[in-house]
Structures are given as C-alpha cells and as structure tokens.
C-alpha cells in the first residue's frame, strides 16, 4: 500500500462559517511531489472546494506562497518528504487578510509596491533617435540582485515589523525601490525618498533579517534596507547641515 502523509489545511469559508478551522487530508507521499502537488491532489481527488493560488509550478510567478509549519515558503519548490513523517500544517500567509482558505488579500501589498515608483524615472527622456541608454555589466550588477524579486510576499509574512506596524512599507517594496535607485539610468531617488524616508519607511525596520532568510530568490531585502538607511542618514544630515544646499 502507498505511504501517505497527513496535511492539515486551514480552511476559511466566510459564507458558511465565520471562523477558520483546520481540515485534515491524507495524501500519497511521493518522492517527486512538492506541497503544491499535494494541494492539487486534494483539489482534484478529494475536495474540490479548497481554494489557493498557484500558476507556474517553478518558483517564478510568486503566487503559491503559504505558511507551512509556521514558515512562509513557496509550496511549488518545497518537497513533501522534507516534512516526514508529518503532519504538515498549511495556512495562508501571515499578516494578510484572508479572502478564502489559502487565498490572501494582496491589494495593500500592491499599493505599497506602487508607492515606491518602481520604474525608471528620468528628468528628461531622450528622444528615440538619440539612441538607447547603455549600461555596462558592472552597472547592471549594481542592482541586478534586487531585480530578482517575484513579489511572492514571503518576506512580508516573515517580518515581525509588518505584523506590528501594518503601514510599514515592507521589505519587497524597499528592495524594489533600491533596484531602481541603483540603476544608473534612473534619476528618481529623490521622489522615492519622499516615500521611504517618512515614518512608514525604511527606519521602521529593526533588522530582524527574516525577510532575507525566507526570500526564495536571494534578493536580500534586509541588506537593501540597511544600505538605504545609510543613504537616508546621509540625506538627513545633509539637509540639516546644508539647509541651502541641494533639495
């Protein structure tokens, strides 16, 4: 007989029951199965009412992040066998509102990402005929790491400050801001500073470092925030000591 493993999945079905509850499922324990395969097995074979997000199955789309045994992970790249002999407890990402079962509300996160203006800002755009913006490999390597973020929101679920201060703009958005700040084609840091050097910005971070621990793409948001703090402090002292200097 096939070995199975026990999954305890947090269910939340607001129209039936206002309280979330854990539901248990026995799924086959197969060597090549990741947690997401087990969830798909439940959905296809046991209980079609289970709701969760997923898309690419290969750690690129960032939609299948969940709390598995209290840790935020991408379920598409974590094998069932790692949790032998079980049970495996699966819950929606921490600190997000839950819409249904494992599906979380992402509007707040998307709004924060948008607020840091994650696009190249130029004081004056070159006309197309003036040619492209050239960049050397060294200039690319300045920001490339921060561009690897897939918006999976695991870092928000890992960050205790996000839990305590919901207005904190958070790790991924700050790393993304740095992705553009360190891009030599960009001239928008001052506009991002207006968002990130306020009380909701980088100085809320207390360097717990969990964001970088859980990041599946090794973006190191904690490092990005620390580097931003140095820039922010320099900016502050400049504005105080040279009040008539640059704005």
């Amino acid at each position: 007989m096939e070995t199975t493993i026990n999954l305890q999945v947090l269910r939340y079905i607001p129209e039936k029951d206002p309280d979330p509850f854990y539901q248990e499922y026995e799924v086959p324990l197969r060597e090549e199965w990741v947690i997401l395969d087990a969830l798909n097995y439940i959905k296809d074979q046991i209980d079609g009412t289970l709701s969760y997000r997923w898309s690419c199955r290969m750690g690129v789309c960032g939609s299948c992040g969940m709390m598995v045994n209290e840790k935020p992970i991408l379920t598409c790249e974590t094998f069932l066998e790692k949790y032998m002999p079980g049970p495996i407890r699966i819950a929606p990402l921490n600190y997000f509102g839950v819409i249904r079962d494992l599906v979380v509300e992402t509007d707040g996160f998307m709004e924060k990402v948008k607020r840091v203006k994650p696009w190249i800002i130029r004081d004056k755009e070159k006309a197309p005929l003036e040619g492209e913006y050239l960049q050397t490999p060294e200039e690319l390597s300045e920001y490339k790491q921060y561009s690897m973020c897939i918006n999976c929101m695991l870092c928000y679920s890992a960050c205790p400050v996000v839990g305590l201060e919901p207005q904190f703009i958070g790790p991924a958005a700050i790393a993304l801001a740095q992705r553009y700040n360190y891009d030599n084609r960009d001239e928008g840091q001052n506009q991002r500073n207006d968002v990130l050097l306020t009380d909701d910005g980088i100085f809320e971070c207390t360097l717990v470092g969990e964001c970088s621990e859980v990041c599946p793409k090794k973006v190191d948001p904690a490092g990005a925030i620390q580097r931003y703090k140095v820039q922010g402090a320099t900016e502050w002292w400049t504005s105080v000591l040279l009040p008539f200097g640059k704005k």
């Binding site: 500073n193 050097l197 306020t198 009380d199 910005g201 100085f203 922010g232 402090a233 502050w236 002292w237």
Partner: peptide
Amino acid sequence: MQKKRSNDPFWWTLFGA
C-alpha cells in the same frame, strides 16, 4: 499629499556609530 520626512535618521546615526 507628501508626508513629512522622519527624524529617525538622527537617532539611527548615533545608534550605528
């Protein structure tokens, strides 16, 4: 509306130093 910038960099500089 643009929010006021934080004065935390001052304390953070002393903290870091």
